[in-house]
Design a binder for these strands. Structure first.
Length: 1164
RNA sequence: GCCGAAGUGGCGGAAUUGGUAGACGCACACGACUCAAAAUCGUGCGGAGAAAUCCAUGAGAGUUCGAUUCUCUCCUUCGGCACCA
């Protein structure tokens, strides 16, 4: 026997395959077709590096196996030869790209043949061949004729170094993808392909194909379909506009949060367009718009840009809540996205929140987190749902830093609290619960800035699912005074104190865990719920939400307050109100309340009582104290207060009110009483109707304090809210009813839908779909590409396509390949070529000088293969296109390519195919039935291989040293096919040894021998290799064959049959070696057409199996038993093992588990 | 920020309807052959321990007789998109 000599063998079989046309394929109706495709390479001057063959080898293995399985396999190859490197080389050296390309293709061809791929070389294509690009041009004209190609002046990314317009996707972090130069923006007339018209088709098509998850997701993400609503926000106070009929149209994907819109944000682009139609903005605003637009053109990394903005001095109306909100112009809203304007919902969008915080705009929470309990308390199907309000107190004993919990009889522990009963408010309920359940009487319920949320779970006691609105408060014990707790309560649960560190471990309820998390978290980041939730009670949520804004320093707060008070109170409309809301934090409110009260008192004496009826014959009285301030605010809303109590009335309010009512002739129960004082509420609730005591949260007491005593709809946050109080019809119809009832308790998806319907019914907005996908910039101002076959004719007033018989429009020879300084392609400098006749009218016309992008030729190459490639292109000329041939081969059964092409190339070629399907040129809407991707091969150290880094491993050297088969097998063995791996030449040694062993096995082959052990291993290997190739798990397929070969090597003799099988299943990986061995074994025909071996299920079964024996889950012994052993027998054998006996320590096993063929597990 | 994937020996990596963690390969160590080296063949190779045994799959909890695999929380890395409203 000779030594294994890859050099000799490989050349021999490559010649054989070529001579016998082993892999050339004909359409054959009798056989199943299989079209396997790899991305055709770009023939660079550097040749192949070891990364290239990975996808080629993989698909070669699959193709060879399919061939052996009897399929008629089309596995073509070609070259995507238009490209920048060749062009840049031409600019540098003056060498014509066509010549260079020819040379490069020759080198690539040599290298590819050297690796023994089973390509059908007869169908080769080259995108730069005029016979080929004639059809690329024809197809482009189809787009043009169907109105899908159009020219548009638009800002493009311009690389000043490459002098080329770049598609968005070629810009990486503001830099040119190719050379790293910072990209500028320029306006340029560009040919565009209207891929956006195919957005839905491209999205839907993904449902019918088998793409790897990542590829599908990336396609979906790139198309970026989002459903939402377009909503009109009416504008008021627009300077320069005489009427009030102006609107801003916004797009939102979260119409359910519209109540939380506290400002309107407009892009500088949109604001500019307003200026253009006569909006008279202030100089400051104009200046900002100009600056912001300038900043846009300098393409610095966008994500680094800080949010800037300016108040436009206009007020918009939230069309649902009818509240006035300020309009801001800001750079964080993009002109080209959506409508160029958004509603700002700071509570539910991080960016809006950042902006609101920076400019002191209010935050209003309308969606609450919906926490669904898991496990035993999870909501159960088929149970009724009840909505409840629940209050919880986290009770802190500051004396020893402990917390008061309740322990139930079943050891469950929780905070103190309970359900809120009808008519009760949360604070009262909590107070009641604390006293009842714990006996503690001396405590303070502190207002908190905790977020409200919903809890969703099943309650066994009432056998219902509950949607609980969870209030929770921080409570401080003032002393340890206690009264006795009733026996019934004690039977239910018993109070106990635990130290801070123990709380989390002790409490058992999910909701309480969340509360504790919120309670202990230092920076409440959780306030921005930009995830799905439940629409909650906005008034309460709002109050809580606002607390965040004032996470400001004292100085900032003081400054804000000073600003507020120093400005005249004539700006009640619009955003100025926000400043007072900003300082709603308790102690600050208190302090300023005191200051304010002093001011009020001194002014008070100047005013005498004034009695006027407010509209709708409602009767109102305003309290003493800071009443003047409240009155002023009410007056600003256009209403007149009816009566203000004087300072002297302060201590005899009840009598004074009685007196006033007598004068008016009304009952005391009929008057509305406005106050910002808690004391008033306590004092007067006996004589007045409690429902008509209105808390004014813009005065002395903050919202939270008033809310402790009054229901939410009786605490007003803005003076404007008074309108809502007095106009019942407005209250319901204008949307506030919606706010509190319509969406309350709905989950996000339903709330969205319901809101959209509501907006549509009320003609405020409508459902709208938005896409991220932009039209494809098809032009490039470069030489090395397909000329665009259009001429511009003045007389025909536009672009005229060249007639088909004038195609191909060949790329003319030029002297210089450098684009002109003004960014035109070198073709533009060839006046002779540019000047032409109009094919339509015969008059003078000018040719388009832009060329097509690289993506054009690769958008249909798989169709060219199916129709016969280069050879047939040449032979058939205009009759090349053949739908019958396409019907035979399309769609591509399996397409493998790089992750870097799963977005653009895949999307663009799918777009072309979809279009060609629509006009009847191709038989299937989707071009590829299946798409997979390979991981990159990296140089040592995890870097990309590149010539500039000098870390390229050359396949020529590897083949020289180890042979093509070893290289192929190693590339397949390196690691999981879809993951990146580092190259390691050392690893190749192991694979070479493996092939050596296979070769050496020849010596042991004998005719008459049976070895059942090897036979079993062999059939297991056949099974595994078959399955693993189909799943692209090449590494484990080879590992399994290595195991088999190791075993065969240990045997003295092996049978011919078994060895033959091995040669067959190894053939796809190491085809040259296996052809040679196949020949040695005495076969005449090539192995490539032999059948793929089938494993015998009977032979896979082993006669003996090793069972693991576990005691309490730990391995204690293994026993070898007959494979068909009975369960009882297995258990008995296991229990009789010495090791097991030792671990049993004489005890009886509680349970013995038997898993057939795997283990016996003994539980003690 | 959003979406996706992944964390296992010195290294590349095996093992998922939950069932003996570390297959296969590299590197390393020892031995055989050799005057010697290479090649080849054999043995060993997660950590601790003399051993019994214990500990180990990013961290922590949970479910289970049993968890790399399932659930929850967190950390890290990589990939994609990005002020996309």
């Amino acid at each position: 026997m000779q030594k294994y000599d890859p050099k000799k063998i490989e050349k021999k079989w490559q010649k054989y395959w070529e001579k016998n046309k082993t892999f050339e394929v004909q359409e054959d109706a009798k056989k199943d077709k299989f079209y396997s495709l790899i991305e055709f390479p770009y023939p660079s001057g550097e040749g192949l590096h070891v990364g290239h063959p990975r996808p080629f080898t993989a698909m070669d293995v699959i193709s060879r196996k399919k061939r052996m399985e009897g399929k008629n396999v089309l596995f073509p190859i070609g070259f995507d030869a238009f490209g920048l490197p060749t062009e840049n080389f031409a600019i540098k050296t003056g060498k014509p790209p066509a010549e260079v390309t020819k040379k490069n293709i020759a080198n690539f061809t040599r290298q590819l043949k050297m690796l023994g791929f089973s390509f059908d070389w007869s169908r080769q294509v080259d995108t730069t061949d005029p016979n080929y690009y004639k059809w690329t041009q024809k197809l482009f004209l189809q787009f043009f004729k169907h109105g899908l190609a159009y020219k548009k002046n638009q800002p493009i990314n311009w690389c000043p170094k490459d002098k080329i317009g770049l598609a968005n996707e070629e810009v990486v972090n503001g830099n040119c993808e190719r050379c790293g130069t910072p990209v500028e923006k320029r306006n340029k007339e560009q040919w565009m392909l209207a891929i956006t018209k195919y957005a839905d088709k491209l999205l839907d098509g993904l449902k019918n194909v088998d793409y790897i998850e990542r590829a599908r997701l990336q396609q979906e993400n790139w198309i970026g379909k989002s459903e939402g609503a377009e909503v009109d926000f009416p504008l008021r106070m627009v300077p320069g506009q005489t009427d009030d009929k102006h609107f801003v149209k916004i797009f939102t994907t979260r119409p359910d949060t519209i109540f939380g819109a506290t400002f309107l944000a407009v892009s500088p682009e949109l604001a500019k367009s307003w200026l253009d139609i006569g909006w008279q903005a202030s100089e400051e605003v104009k200046k900002y718009i100009t600056q912001a637009l300038e900043a846009r053109t300098a393409v610095t990394a966008r994500e680094e840009q800080e949010k800037t903005g300016i108040s436009a001095g206009i007020v918009a109306i939230n069309p649902v809540s009818k509240k006035e909100i300020p309009v801001w112009i800001t750079n964080y809203v993009m002109g080209e996205v959506g409508t160029g304007a958004i509603m700002g919902v700071p509570a539910h969008d991080q960016r809006d929140f950042d902006f609101a915080k920076k400019f002191g705009l209010p935050v209003k929470q309308v969606v609450m987190q919906n926490i669904v309990v898991a496990g035993a308390a999870a909501p159960r199907e088929g149970k009724d749902l009840v909505q409840r309000k629940v209050v919880t107190g986290i009770i802190h004993n500051p004396k020893n830093d402990t917390f008061l919990l309740l322990r139930r009889a079943d050891k469950e522990s929780s905070f103190v609290g309970g359900t809120i009963e009808n008519g009760e408010d949360a604070i009262t309920a909590l107070r009641r619960e604390i006293v009842e359940e714990t006996g503690y009487t001396d405590f303070e319920i502190k207002s908190t800035s905790f977020p409200n949320f919903f809890g969703n779970g099943y309650k066994l006691r009432i056998d219902k699912n509950c949607l609980d609105f969870e209030y929770f408060y921080a409570v401080e014990l003032k002393s340890e005074d206690r009264q006795e707790v009733s026996k019934e309560e004690l039977a239910k649960h018993e109070p106990f104190l635990v130290p801070r560190a123990e709380v989390s471990k002790t409490i058992t309820l999910t909701m309480h865990q969340y509360m504790w998390k919120y309670y202990t978290e230092e920076k409440p980041k959780y306030l921005i719920f930009d995830f799905d939730g439940v629409i909650g009670n906005t008034f309460e949520a709002c109050a809580k939400a606002q607390m965040v804004i004032d996470n400001k320093s004292k100085e900032e707060a003081v400054e804000a307050m000073t600003r507020y008070f120093s400005s005249k109170p004539n700006h009640a409309k619009g955003h100025s109100l926000t400043e007072i809301e900003m300082v709603a934090k308790l102690d600050w409110t208190r302090r300023f309340g005191e200051e304010m009260a002093k001011l009020e008192y001194s002014l008070f004496s100047k005013f005498n009582k004034e009695i006027k009826n407010i509209p709708n014959t409602k009767v109102a009285i305003i309290s003493a104290g800071s009443g003047l301030y409240i009155r002023n605010r009410i007056e600003e809303t256009g209403l007149n207060p009816s009566h203000v109590l004087t300072f002297e009335d302060h201590h005899s309010k009840e009598e004074k009110i009685e007196q006033v009512c007598k004068d008016w002739g009304v009952s005391m129960k009929d008057v509305y009483y406005f106050t910002d004082s808690k004391a008033d509420v306590y004092e007067l609730e006996d004589c007045l109707d409690r429902k008509k005591i209105i808390g004014c949260a813009w005065g002395y007491c903050g919202y939270d304090l008033l809310r402790e005593l009054l229901p939410e709809n009786q605490v007003l946050k803005n003076p404007e809210d008074i309108h809502l109080l007095f106009a019942d019809s407005v209250y319901e119809n204008e949307g506030v009813a919606v706010e509190s009832e319509f969406l309350n308790g709905l989950k996000t998806p339903e709330a969205k839908q319901k809101m959209i319907s509501w907006l549509e019914e009320n003609r405020i907005g409508k459902k709208q779909i938005n896409y991220k996908l932009r039209d494809w910039v098809f032009s490039r101002q470069r030489y090395w590409g397909e000329p665009i076959p259009l001429v511009h004719c003045e007389k025909c007033s536009g672009w005229v396509p060249l007639p088909e018989d004038e195609l191909p429009l060949k790329l003319p020879k030029v002297e210089k390949y450098q684009p002109t300084d003004n960014g035109e392609s070198p073709l533009a400098a060839m006046e002779k070529w540019v000047k032409t006749k109009c094919p339509n009218c015969g008059g003078p016309a000018r040719r388009e000088t832009d060329t097509m992008p690289n993506w054009a030729g690769s958008s249909w190459y798989f169709l060219a293969y199916a129709m016969g490639g280069e050879k047939r292109l040449k032979e058939k000329g205009d009759k090349f296109w053949d739908k019958e041939m396409l019907k035979h081969w399309q769609p591509v059964d399996w397409y493998n390519g790089g992750m870097e092409h799963t977005v653009l190339h895949l999307l663009y070629s799918r777009f072309w195919n979809q279009f060609l399907y629509d006009i009847g040129m191709v038989p299937t809407p989707e071009p590829y039935a299946k798409r997979t991707s390979h991981g990159m091969i990296l140089a040592k150290g995890g870097e990309k291989m590149s010539k500039s880094k000098g870390n390229v491993v050359n396949p020529d050297e590897m083949v020289e040293q180890f042979g093509a088969d070893a290289l192929r097998a190693y590339i397949m063995f390196m690691g999981p096919f879809d993951q990146a791996v580092e190259w390691d030449t050392n690893g190749l040694v192991g694979v070479k040894r493996f092939l050596d062993k296979v070769w050496n096995l020849q010596e042991k082959v004998e005719n008459k021998i049976t070895d059942t052990k090897i036979e079993t291993a062999l059939h297991q290997t056949i099974k595994k290799v078959t399955e693993d190739i189909d799943a692209m798990r090449f590494n484990t397929a080879i590992a399994k064959m290595m195991e088999l070969v190791n075993e065969m090597s240990k045997a003295d003799k092996i049978s011919v049959v078994n060895y033959t099988y091995l040669v067959q299943i190894l053939a796809p990986f190491a085809p040259h070696l296996c052809e040679e061995l196949w020949d040695v074994l005495g076969h005449e025909k090539s192995l490539a057409c032999e059948s793929w071996p089938q494993f015998n299920p009977e032979l896979i079964k082993e006669s003996e199996v090793t069972l693991a024996v576990q005691v309490n889950g730990k391995l204690r012994d293994t026993i070898t038993v007959a494979a068909d052993i009975s369960e009882e027998e297995a258990k008995r054998t296991a229990l009789s093992s010495e090791a097991v006996k030792k671990w049993l320590e004489g005890k009886e096993p509680k349970k013995v588990i038997y898993v057939k063929g795997k283990l016996v597990s003994v539980v003690v």
